[in-house]
Design a protein around this nucleic acid. Structure first.
Length: 415
RNA sequence: GGCAAGUUACCCAAGCGGCCAAAGGGAUCUGACUGUAAAUCAGACGGCUCAGCCUUCACAGGUUCGAAUCCUGUACUUGCCA
């Protein structure tokens, strides 16, 4: 198991490797990973953790999925800037969403079924005095200041609030609580969380005299230096209402050659042999994008299921196909457009406004610019005039394909 | 609590009375080339009823024909001292 994780590149930092190897190769242990509600949905960064947990679960170990009902109210310090606090209601609502998402990826059946816990359950009843006496005494300020996230902020013009500074203590408490309640001896998380992970192992060492473990997975980056997990500048979410399965599939399909093998290791359950064979394919026939197709298929199926994935593939085939749109059966095109952002509109609607309505552009000015730059198409015909209306461009079934650039599409249905 | 410095568009960062919708870099978008890659080159990058107009340079007032630039107050941030 340990070797498997290492081969997939999932271990960036960890506590003692030999001990972990033994632990993961031995009888079932209980381990946990936490997810803070910073948004209504988890994103691709969280997916790394979810799949890592699943791998460890498949080796027979018992996962605890922690949702950060309390830590989400405090905010994990980011290196750049202080977070804006969300209301308690908002956080509580997001916690609910995260619970469901976490449950989707981890088996709920059998000996080592997923158990979901919420750190608000043990944090909320704690008084400030108890917190400072029973927990605070174990933490040395010098150590706390050395954590990367904290020191980065201290050295910045932004500074850090006491609230965010305290975050590591809360996360340390979580690990201790889970150790006591469930015998949890391993925590996984992103390597940017390393300071918070060790906060827990240190606390348990001091409070209980036991050594427990932590694994930090690497931060996923793109080889060209841009930020991973952004499509069109927006985050890629696991929630299908926030990122459609179609957009999700497209995101993976557009993976850079230089990154695709690494992604397959991290984000799919394909075997070593299968991935190595795809590696060959990238080297010998890159233009076929076999590895990208496999990646997009696997990950979309994991997150959205086989049915939604099939619809996304069919939609892509229809919209990116070589043939004329008019030659496509009406129902195929109709289904494809429903996978995309779409609106209904009257023939008198201007193309520029429809671009805004479908989210292809952010403002009319941007629409005009895009048209002037020759980047807007209706049913694959370039729009030349920024005052154009959708007019009679509707195809037989009363729909039209709006495109910006090469691959950003939207559907328009006749009102 | 005292003293000092700072707050510019998505991010970093210039500007220090008119030539400023505001240099430069990054990110992003479009075009060319391609494989719905990458790299490279070119253009765009506040909003609009777009040869013009409107709203921006922390916030609120003021000085001035004219302010991102000067003055006053407020908020926030940082550093040093207590």
């Amino acid at each position: 198991m340990w070797e498997e994780l290492r081969w997939r590149g999932l271990v960036h930092v960890s506590t003692d490797g030999d001990a972990l190897k033994e632990l993961l190769g031995g009888p079932p242990i209980t381990f946990y990973c936490g997810f803070d509600p910073t948004a209504p949905s988890l994103h691709l960064g969280n997916l790394v953790q979810l799949l890592t947990m699943r791998r460890i679960q498949l080796a027979g170990h018992r996962p605890l999925g922690l949702v950060g009902g309390s830590t989400g109210l405090i905010g994990d310090p980011r290196p750049t800037a202080e977070r804006t606090l969300n209301t308690r209601d908002t956080v509580a609502e997001w916690v609910g969403h995260l619970r469901n998402q976490v449950a989707r990826f981890l088996g709920a059946e059998g000996e080592n079924a997923l158990r979901v816990v919420n750190n608000l359950d043990w944090t909320a009843p704690l008084s400030a005095i108890d917190f400072l006496r029973d927990v605070g005494k174990y933490f040395r300020v010098g150590t706390m200041l050395k954590k990367d996230a904290v020191s980065a902020r201290l050295n910045s013009a932004e500074g850090i609030s006491f609230t965010e500074f305290s975050y590591q203590v809360l996360q340390g408490m979580d690990f201790l609580q889970l150790y006591r309640d469930y015998g949890c001896v391993l925590q996984t998380g992103g390597s940017d969380q390393w300071g918070n992970l060790t906060s827990g192992t240190d606390l348990i060492h001091k409070a209980e005299g036991t050594s427990v473990h932590a694994i930090g997975t690497p931060l996923i980056t793109n080889s060209d230096g841009t930020k991973f997990g952004k499509s069109e500048g927006n985050a890629v979410w696991l929630d299908p209402t926030m990122t459609s399965p179609y957009a999700f599939y497209q995101f993976w399909l557009n993976t850079d050659d230089a990154d695709v093998i690494f992604r397959l290791k991290v984000f799919t359950f394909l075997s070593r042999e299968e991935i190595e064979s795809l590696d060959q394919a990238v080297a010998s026939e890159p233009f076929r994008r076999e590895a990208q197709r496999a990646l997009a298929l696997e990950v979309t199926t994991l997150v959205h299921g086989a049915e939604a994935t099939e619809a996304a593939i069919k939609a892509a085939a229809a919209l990116f196909g070589q043939g004329e749109l008019t030659e496509l059966p009406g129902d195929v095109l109709d289904a494809a457009l429903r996978e995309l952002p779409h609106v209904t509109a009257a023939p008198a609607s201007s193309v520029a406004q429809l671009l805004v309505d479908t989210g292809l552009t952010a403002s009319l000015g941007e629409s005009r610019r895009a048209i002037a730059q020759g980047g807007v198409y209706v049913n694959n015909a370039k729009v030349a005039d920024d005052s154009a209306t959708i007019g009679d461009a509707f195809l037989g079934a009363g729909l039209a394909v709006l495109r910006r650039g090469k691959k950003t599409l939207a559907g328009v249905f006749r009102a």
